[in-house]
Amino acid sequence: MAIEFNTTESTKIKDLKVITPSAFEETRGSIWTSYTTGEVGTLLPKDLFFKHDKFSVSKKNVLRGIHGDHKSWKLVSCVSGSILQVVVDMREDSDTFLQWESFDLGGDNRQMILIPPGLGNAFYVKSDLATYHYKLAYDGDYADADEQFTVKWNDPRINIEWPTTDPILSERDRRL
């Protein structure tokens, strides 16, 4: 079984990458690799590497985000359930500022999204339960919630087409 990744550039947002690993399918199910330093690791800037992983388990109709910072690279995927992944360009100097792109992740879709610094990250849970995986790379210490930017999930400047008008939000996201 060869470990291969198909990496494509977003057609909407500069520097955003979509990574699809190859999978070995057989009667028991399937198996695939989500990360190697020689393939996915080379997509990061020189001298930067993934430092830690996080998982988020969320119920149906939960919307998390739009959050981000200006130093973290995030490799995200949905390892169980299904979500609508949304990425928003929040880099004011970018020619794709305030543009967004969405991806259906989870289920039989093994795609991963590599999100560079300055892009907002959000997802909406479509299944009864979903497990979301973040792999994080950054210089220095982790930029936790108090150091991150937060954008209102339904900001009219962005006009994201969410599958609901009444999502379950965190206190942080409701305060906006």
Rank of each mutant, 00 (worst) to 15 (best):
N159P: 01
F123V: 05
D95Q: 13
A143M: 09
E25V: 13
I13M: 00
E39Y: 03
V76K: 02
R110T: 15
A130M: 03
F50E: 09
F50A: 12
F49T: 07
N61C: 09
Y134L: 04
A130R: 09
D166G: 07
G140Q: 08
K46D: 10
G38A: 08
F123K: 04
N61W: 07
D173P: 03
L84F: 02
T150M: 03
I158T: 07
F49N: 05
G81E: 03
N154R: 00
S30L: 15
D47H: 06
F50I: 11
R157N: 14
D166C: 06
M112F: 03
D108V: 13
L136Q: 06
Y124M: 02
A23K: 11
D155C: 10
P156G: 09
W162K: 06
L43C: 08
R28K: 13
T164F: 01
D108H: 12
V62D: 03
S58E: 02
P156I: 15
W162F: 03
V79T: 05
K71M: 12
Q148W: 04
N6Q: 14
L16S: 07
G120F: 05
V18S: 11
V76R: 00
S127Q: 13
D166S: 12
L136P: 00
E101D: 05
K60E: 15
G65L: 04
F55V: 07
D104G: 06
P116Q: 15
S72T: 14
A23N: 11
T165E: 12
N6M: 12
T11Y: 08
H52M: 11
V79S: 07
G29S: 13
I13A: 03
S127W: 04
S80G: 08
G81N: 02
L129R: 15
M90N: 14
L84T: 07
Y35I: 07
A122C: 05
R91V: 14
W32K: 05
D173N: 01
E26N: 14
F123D: 01
V86L: 02
S30A: 15
A23I: 10
S127V: 07
I115R: 10
E9Y: 14
I158G: 05
P117V: 14
F123A: 08
M1G: 14
K46Q: 09
G68F: 03
Y132T: 01
R110P: 09
A2D: 13
P156A: 12
D104N: 10
S34E: 15
T96F: 11
G38W: 00
F97G: 05
P116V: 13
I115H: 04
F5G: 13
Y35E: 09
L44Q: 06
S127P: 06
G41L: 03
R175I: 11
P156N: 14
T36C: 10
T164V: 10
G106A: 06
V87A: 04
T164Y: 04
F49Y: 01
F50V: 11
F50Y: 12
S22Q: 05
P45T: 07
T165S: 13
G120A: 06
R174S: 06
I31V: 15
V151M: 05
D166T: 15
V40D: 12
I66Q: 01
P167V: 00
A23F: 10
H67Q: 08
F103T: 02
T33A: 13
L105Q: 01
T42K: 11
P163S: 04
L136M: 13
